[in-house]
Design a binder for these strands. Structure first.
Lengths: 157, 157
DNA sequence: TATTGTTATACTCTATAACTATA
DNA sequence: TATAGTTATAGAGTATAACAATA
């Protein structure tokens, strides 16, 4: 994959696909010594940064199916990194929290994220890097209406 | 997915993942009337823009496995959109070309791509749109300085 | 000996639906 | 009635390896 076929440069969707694949592979490389999958790290990130999360919240955050989330959390719980606790107000829901081991692992995940982003954005100047990041976020999370159209700018104030 | 968890805004990889998912879903919506999958459209794009391609070239372009490419081309050939022909110089290889129906379908794919990109980049000004596109391409296909970074193993003995 | 394409296999991910226990 | 989580299943995608024909 050393060449860049012209169609890929002209089609944004293909470029985004390869950008994501590249980012995911970089991250997987950094996570390899920790024996963690990318989505495991993502879950750890969410519960360590946001505190207790329900499985539903994690499903929404990660954009995966709830049945997948069950299995992923089973694996994380089996490794002693997270725990399903009783939710304080909703007896249907689980409160997913990080264990001490999970928090310790997250410190390493955070370091892996930093290394990954530094490796990935080496082709940018620091200013471009910030700009790129903010534009990707805007693109990824811009509000959309029923037809899927992204509404014009709603600049965060 | 109406809210944007803070971790996703701060982690480039997660934002890229959602950006790609969003783009892929927009494109899939536009392709639905054509009864085409995203990767089918990608292959059609490559052989219509670049001319005859070997399966190996398509594998490299699309970043999928060669065994997957066999099945995908089987489906496209069954629909009469592409044809495997004898390669002019390499008797091992197939020359994948578009049929007349394939070229006609590609015209519709090209229109779907245009609509998709217009819908997706509605949150940007025309200048930002160009900038974003060029930065994604740079990021996705930046030259392989990364190859050195890929191998963290420098075991001291 | 290496490469192109094919086949086979196993594993993961996705998508769906049914089910329970709660709300 | 709707929601949170679980379980089951089928289909698609990914990753490997073995293989035949050819380079």
């Amino acid at each position: 994959m050393n060449e860049t076929p012209a169609p890929q440069r002209s089609v944004l969707g293909l470029a985004l696909r390869h950008a994501h694949l590249r980012a995911a592979r970089f991250f997987a490389q950094e996570l390899e010594p920790l024996d963690l999958e990318n989505h495991h790290a993502g879950i750890l990130l969410h519960i360590c940064r946001l505190g207790m999360q329900t499985q539903r919240q994690l499903v929404d955050s990660m954009g995966v199916d709830k049945s997948m989330m069950v299995r992923t959390l089973d694996a994380l719980e089996a490794r002693g990194l997270v725990r399903r606790e009783a939710h304080p107000t909703d007896r249907r829901a689980h409160a997913i929290v990080a264990t001490n081991a999970g928090r310790a692992m997250f410190d390493q995940v955070a370091a892996a994220i930093r290394r990954t982003e530094e490796r990935m954005t080496a082709c940018f100047t620091p200013e471009e890097r910030e700009l790129f990041h903010s534009m990707v976020v805007r693109f990824a999370y811009a509000p959309a209406d029923e037809e899927g159209l992204i509404k014009p700018e709603t600049p965060r104030t």
